[in-house]
Nucleic acid binder design. Sequence first.
DNA 1: CACGCTAATGGCACCCAGTGCCAGAAGGAA
DNA 2: TTCCTTCTGGCACTGGGTGCCATTAGCGTG
Lengths: 210, 210
Amino acid sequence: MPDDGARNGTAGTAAPGAPRPGRRPATTRDELTHLALELFAAKGFDATTVDDIAAAAGIGRRTFFRYFASKNDLPWGDFDERLEDMRKHFARIPDGTPLMEAVRIATIEFNRMPPAEVRYHRERMALLLRVPTLLAHSTLRFAAWRQVVAEFAGHRLGLPEGDLQPQAIAWAALGIALSAYEQWLDHEDSDLSELLDRSLCMLNSGFSSR
Amino acid sequence: MPDDGARNGTAGTAAPGAPRPGRRPATTRDELTHLALELFAAKGFDATTVDDIAAAAGIGRRTFFRYFASKNDLPWGDFDERLEDMRKHFARIPDGTPLMEAVRIATIEFNRMPPAEVRYHRERMALLLRVPTLLAHSTLRFAAWRQVVAEFAGHRLGLPEGDLQPQAIAWAALGIALSAYEQWLDHEDSDLSELLDRSLCMLNSGFSSR
DNA sequence: CACGCTAATGGCACCCAGTGCCAGAAGGAA
DNA sequence: TTCCTTCTGGCACTGGGTGCCATTAGCGTG
């Protein structure tokens, strides 16, 4: 059995929660993520073994893999829930808004974060986009992001989401967002929202103006 | 194993004779790729171990890793040389050609193949884009492709290739090409060049027309 | 022919990620 | 206490990938 990680940890949020039977989880995904990120920053991603992380968390190596399917998944945090937010955001965009305009807005919104978290997010994204192993793995996560965009585009165009145009839009939007992220990481003083806005406008004008 | 031919290492590039000193390589990258692709088709990528491949080729496991840095690299064949071709192709495009038009043409050209190879290429690409491990790994190869496009775009725009616009163009072009590839794989009777042409035209018009 | 130079091979030990199995540990409720 | 449940974590095993090093195989020269 894949033994799929993450059950009722119920990390951050309160949720006093109905007292369930059985032994309590020894830790949470959040805790492991934080801990691991510190180790990565200190020793580097590749040099940090799962044993290191488990030891630091005071759990067994085997247990670690019940919280995360792989070491690569550690930096992704609550990505899947964020995707749901984006789906909802798309749903709230007025029908009158042009398709690519909606994509632009939703993408910017998806990547908005409180100023206090900028520093943290930057570190996380630097890991994800600059450590080759993680960059490779990220492709699989990004596929889920593309899926959300393709769903919306397909809906708007009255086409199946698997058709060329919705898929092309989703792929292009992802590519554009990643190029903006790379600029953001390269330039300490840059603003992510602005970079996303600029690059998505380029996309929407077919890179014609200069 | 019939390790006949495959005399000269460095198959492909010139230097027909050039009697070098030292022991002859036991096989070639090409031979290993072919062999492996057959095994993948028969047993699946994940179920085929490096030991299987090495055994089938009649070489030691250790030797395999001197021909390919990883099992994931097997299906990529001569990709790097093909990239050089694309670089040259870009260089030959007349200066009068609009930038995005040049990108469209070069992308289509890069992905052109003799009809006899279509079947083979389809199988290879299905592996690369549908086996999760390989899809993830492919990101790293695609980075090199983007680099070629970004170089050209940067050159044309008079900007460093690392700037937002060249990078955005490269990312978008890659995304578009991949969406075309997915359609091609999904529809047995489709034509890759045509799909690339259609999706790149969409890109160049900012996905505006319908 | 024997020697030395060079370039490749391949066995061995080892590291690390990830998995199946299973015997417990820890909690609530009867 | 006993039962039931959930989570833990040790153990053994697979498979990719690497460092080390002795060995093999070609070539040229004395």
